[in-house]
């Protein structure tokens, strides 16, 4: 059957709420409004206000309440409207959720899931278009998921809820209306490992989230030329799946990383460094990167498009590397 990314998120949440009575969703406009992106439409009527909690605009407060509720035995899902607003809750996420286990010598567990929308591409301007998921991946103590496919959007929540540590899920806004053919039941596949979405030998293309489809599009173009590009979908940005990355690099010897975040001090820099440290003598060319240009996202359509990696740029870059 055909399912959209939005429907997949919705099904994931529905399953979670039905499986465990201790699961509840808290966030801005998740209830009466039906979710900012209409993911939770009708949930309030079905599950009631105790499990679908419309929160005031108090990110630090309701994220902290989520942490406490998780410590107290519930399984909260905190929804933050966009990654930009998550910065208001950063203290709770980093100074508490990520470190309570360590600070307490292993005694305190915070089994909290935080979902948020990420990414640019909708002409929403500089304060609604950030891609901070790579930045969050800097922090020990949390796990970072970036579902890029409908199937992952559908199944990753159930794994996140079973994890004893805080998991942040970044849902890319541009993917909400994309659709895919999926099976009756969600796929049983841990979201904490990378997946080779397309295998090939000409080059290893490493990406995640909103950039995956563009990378697959680019790879398709090369297929026509008889060149097979291998596309790795990281899926989980922390912990990084070194094994899948290194295996592919050792086989293909050429690498391009496509990351929607800014280049300086980015996740792409981290992956590049790891490849250098572990696969240096397997490389036939320097590791290349395509990232968001180092500006806040502009409103004007043509400028926004130029600021975020597009399929044609990816194609051009691959040509340069494999020529």
């Amino acid at each position: 059957m055909k399912m959209t990314y939005r429907e997949a998120l919705r099904e994931g949440l529905k399953n979670a709420l039905e499986e465990n009575p201790n699961v509840f969703l808290v966030g801005e406009d998740v209830g009466a409004y039906g979710g900012t992106y209409a993911v939770t439409k009708g949930f309030l009527e079905t599950y009631g206000p105790e499990r679908i909690m419309d929160a005031p605009l108090s990110e630090v407060g309701f994220t902290g309440i989520g942490i406490g509720a998780a410590m107290g035995g519930l399984r909260p899902i905190v929804e933050i409207m966009t990654v930009n607003f998550s910065l208001l809750a950063l203290d709770q996420i980093i100074n508490s959720a990520a470190i309570l286990r360590h600070m307490s010598g292993g005694q305190i567990s915070v089994p909290l899931v935080i979902r948020m929308t990420t990414g640019g591409g909708r002409q929403l301007g500089a304060q609604h278009s950030h891609s901070f998921e790579g930045w969050y991946a800097h922090i020990p103590g949390i796990k970072i998921l970036a579902p890029a496919t409908v199937e992952d959007a559908r199944s990753c929540l159930s794994y996140a809820l079973k994890d004893p540590d805080p998991v942040l899920i970044f849902e890319h806004a541009l993917l909400l209306n994309t659709s895919e053919e999926v099976g009756e039941l969600p796929e049983i596949r841990s979201p904490f490992k990378a997946v080779v979405r397309k295998s090939g030998t000409a080059l290893t293309l490493i990406t995640y989230g909103g950039m995956l489809n563009r990378c697959l599009e680019a790879a398709k173009e090369f297929e026509k030329l008889g060149k097979e590009i291998e596309v790795i979908d990281l899926r989980c940005l922390r912990p990084l799946d070194n094994e899948t990355i290194f295996q592919s690099v050792k086989k293909n010897h050429r690498v391009l990383i496509v990351d929607e975040g800014w280049k300086s001090g980015s996740l792409s820099a981290e992956i590049s460094a790891r490849i250098m440290e572990n696969c240096f003598f397997d490389l036939d060319a320097p590791v290349e990167r395509l990232c968001r240009r180092e500006v806040p996202i502009p409103y004007a359509r043509h400028l926004e498009l130029a600021a975020i990696p597009q399929a044609d740029e990816i194609i051009k870059k691959i040509q340069e590397i494999i020529k």
Binding site: N22, F24, E50, V60, G61, F62, T63, G64, I65, G66, I67, G68, A69, A70, M71, G72, G73, L74, P76, D91, Q92, N95, S96
Partner: peptide, 17 residues
């Protein structure tokens, strides 16, 4: 003040459970 919302979460959990 960081512990204050967390305490509210603990209290909420105790009430719900």
């Amino acid at each position: 003040a960081s512990g204050i919302p967390q305490a509210a979460g603990l209290a909420l959990a105790a009430k719900r459970l």
